[in-house]
């Protein structure tokens, strides 16, 4: 089989499997998997900037929250219906990530990490500050009646699962297409050796800018979908923790692999799910996994798989 055929078989196979699972899974895991697919879409967005372009952002919660609040506030205060509200969330994410990119890309390395962290923190505090509209930490519920898209009730578990799968499939395909497209290959080259790419005649700044906007917009789409499908928007989704999560998922699953974000989100979700039955301090698991990964498996699960068996894995 050619590499191309293998890639299509593997990624298509995953989507088919996810489709079939919805008829088999018990209700609890069915709901979990819907959540995981939306969060994995967020991780796919993060991976485009971190895994493929080599820029480590500590502020993606800003984009996730921009999507969530762009959608949620649109429904809550402007009386938008689902489709325009989703669009508002996506646009909010594109604008916010574009604005942050213009500032943060003037820096590099550690400074880039701190700058993204600081602006995201300012975003989180802004959500708290305008508590009158956002209801701060407490958040607000998006009612079932407000979650109807073209007559389909998105709060119904089956519809919700299907919507989550559509979103994830879209993100996966965009990501796969991007990294096999010349533009994506240039991003990978920038990650590997930025100065060399510049001296081949590429404009590094524009490439990174586009990568950051694409990454931020996908993250925002996931944020908007999360709020819509699970009917809730709250400030905790804008907090530092939600910037650390996609980093953790992508590191665990394998940075710079198309499947890595999904694998990492799946594992981490169930790890935390299992441990939260034992202790309230479930973030301990996240901390331990982060340290162990940086120490022993910086390539993550899919990265190790690629190094050892499937050299063709994109």
């Amino acid at each position: 089989m050619s590499a191309r055929a293998k890639i299509i078989a593997l990624h298509g196979g995953l989507l088919v499997l996810l489709f079939v699972l919805q008829f088999i899974l018990p209700a609890y895991h069915h709901g979990n998997l819907a959540r995981i697919m939306v969060l994995a879409s967020y991780a796919v967005g993060y991976n485009i900037l971190f895994g493929y372009t080599g820029l480590l952002s500590l502020g993606h919660a800003l984009f996730f929250a921009a999507g969530m609040y762009g959608m949620g506030l649109g429904i809550q205060h402007l009386g938008l219906t689902v489709a325009p509200a989703m669009l508002a969330g996506v646009i909010a994410g594109a604008v916010v990530s574009g604005a942050l990119a213009l500032l943060a890309l003037r820096t590099a390395g550690v400074a880039f990490m701190i700058v993204t962290l600081m602006f995201a923190q300012a975003g989180y505090l802004t959500v708290l500050y305008f508590g009158e509209y956002t209801r701060g930490d407490e958040g607000f519920v998006i009612q079932q009646a407000q979650r109807m898209l073209w007559g389909i009730d998105l709060s119904d578990p089956t519809n919700r699962y299907f919507a989550a799968l559509m979103l994830f499939a879209l993100c996966l395909i965009v990501s796969l297409w991007l990294v096999r497209h010349p533009f994506g290959k240039t991003l990978i080259a920038i990650r590997e050796n930025e100065e060399r790419v510049r001296m081949l005649g590429y404009n590094i700044y524009t490439h990174k800018l586009i990568a950051m906007v694409v990454s931020g917009t996908i993250s925002a789409t996931a944020g908007a979908a999360y709020g819509l499908l699970f009917g809730y928007a709250g400030a905790s989704f804008a907090s530092v923790q939600y910037s650390i999560f996609p980093l953790l998922w992508v590191l665990l699953g394998g940075a710079g692999t198309v499947l890595g974000p999904f694998i990492g989100t799946l594992f981490m979700f169930y790890l935390i799910d299992l441990s939260s039955g034992i202790t309230t301090a479930y973030m301990l698991i996240a901390g331990v996994v982060l340290v162990l990964l940086t120490l022993f498996a910086p390539q993550g699960l899919a990265g190790e798989l690629r190094n050892r068996i499937w050299r063709w894995l994109p």
């Binding site: 390395g109 990490m113 340290v291």
Partner: peptide, 30 residues
């Protein structure tokens, strides 16, 4: 045990100290 093994690489040490943050904080909570 941690930073030395990462060879003090600036980006990887940040990720590791984020992990350390959660470990210390959550162990204190427990």
């Amino acid at each position: 045990t941690i930073l030395k093994r990462l060879d003090y690489d600036p980006e990887r040490t940040i990720v590791a100290t984020i992990g350390l943050l959660y470990i210390i904080q959550q162990l204190t909570l427990m």
